[in-house]
Amino acid sequence: MKKLTICLTLVALSTTFLSGCVAQDEVDRREQVVRTLEDQVYRLQNELDQANAALNDRQQEISQESNVVQDLQRQNATLRRQLADSVQKLKDLAGRMSELGKGLTDPEMQAALSDLAASNPDLFTYDQSSGVIRLGSDVTFNSGSSEVKPQAAAALKKLAAILKSHLDRPFEVWVVGYTDSQPIGKSRNRYPTNMHLSAYRAISVRDVLVREGLPPDRVGIGGWGQYRPVAPASPKGEKANRRVEIYLRPLSSTAGTTAPQQASAPQKKQPSPAKPLEDIPMK
């Protein structure tokens, strides 16, 4: 009996011990789960903080970009107003130029100039609206030269005849030379710069017109060299930039007092060194 009691006591103690071990394992497992969840919460909180910080930064960038866009919109509106003002001023100027040009030519003279340009398409163009006669330098001169070619001189003689027959109109003639952007080559000793070459080409054209009877005090010259091109600096564009333009402008108050000269045979002149630009009258 005593042995049975001892055995039962041992069994009870063993059961209690085993129950305690099972409960502790469950506690440990749950604590591990809690720690894992706490780690996840900490990591997610960090990610959330980083996302909020990035969102704030982006909102600030958007705000700054919005300010930039607004500034650009204001600048655009200002530029549009300035452009509209410039266009209107250009229209007003064109209108005033048109008014100034009224009475300079008549239909007969315009028709004669148009016919001359049509019969010499490689040499002349004529714009009735602006009164500009344009000569291509490649046809009028040899490269690097200011001597007018015979074919161009013959066409200029016809131009002079048209202008001379309408000297009762209140116009004067301005001959302005232009070149391409290429530097002067072999003829540098005579024409140090493109400005010199353009001015001397204008002088040569003027000489033909005056020799053919236009009053010298109604024909002026100018030269712009490579400046004021009409086309980009491409091979085709540079050809267009090499030109001489003849403008009909309102007669100044001191012009037209010299009687027209009689046409005479061209005199062969020896080339002379270029004068300084300050000695050349410019437009």
Rank of each mutant, 00 (worst) to 15 (best):
A117T: 03
S129H: 05
A118M: 12
G101L: 06
A53E: 12
P121W: 06
S145V: 07
V132F: 01
Q128A: 13
I133Y: 14
V69N: 04
D85Q: 15
R96N: 00
D85E: 15
L100Y: 07
P107E: 14
L123G: 04
A54Q: 10
L104T: 09
Q60E: 14
Q64D: 14
G144P: 13
M109H: 06
Q60A: 11
I62Q: 13
N142F: 07
N46Q: 11
S63T: 15
T140P: 04
N67D: 07
L135N: 14
R58F: 05
G95P: 04
K89P: 01
S130L: 05
S137R: 07
S130T: 14
N120H: 14
A53W: 13
G131M: 07
V87H: 09
Q73N: 13
V132H: 00
G95T: 10
Q110R: 07
D57H: 08
R80Y: 01
T105R: 12
E108G: 03
L83Y: 10
G136P: 01
L90S: 15
T140F: 01
V139F: 02
M97A: 12
E108L: 07
N67Q: 08
S114Q: 13
L116Q: 00
R58E: 07
L55D: 11
D57Y: 02
R80E: 06
L135T: 15
N56R: 13
S86I: 02
I133W: 12
L55G: 08
G103E: 11
R58L: 12
N67I: 14
L104Q: 11
N76F: 02
G101I: 03
R58M: 00
E47K: 11
T125Q: 14
N67R: 11
S143L: 14
R96I: 00
A77V: 08
D106P: 01
A111K: 04
D138G: 06
D138I: 04
D49I: 10
A112C: 01
K102W: 01
Q110C: 07
A53Q: 13
Y126A: 00
N76V: 15
E108R: 02
M97R: 15
V87S: 11
Q60R: 15
D115M: 06
A54N: 03
L113P: 08
A77E: 02
L116M: 08
F141L: 10
N76I: 14
Y126S: 00
L93I: 07
S119G: 08
A117F: 12
N52D: 07
S130V: 10
A118I: 05
L116S: 02
R134H: 02
A118F: 07
A51V: 00
M97K: 05
S137D: 12
Q50N: 12
G101T: 01
S86E: 12
L79E: 09
K89T: 06
L135W: 10
N52H: 09
M109K: 10
I133A: 09
A117K: 08
G136T: 10
E108H: 02
G131P: 13
S130N: 05
S98D: 04
A84M: 08
K91Y: 09
S98A: 05
G95S: 07
A117H: 06
L116V: 00
S145N: 02
L83S: 08
M97T: 03
L90K: 15
L93P: 07
L48G: 01
S114Y: 12
A117W: 15
P107G: 08
D138F: 11
K102P: 06
S86W: 03
I133D: 03
Q75E: 06
E65S: 04
V139R: 06
L83I: 11
D49G: 08
Q73E: 09
T125W: 10
Q82S: 04
G136K: 13
N142L: 04
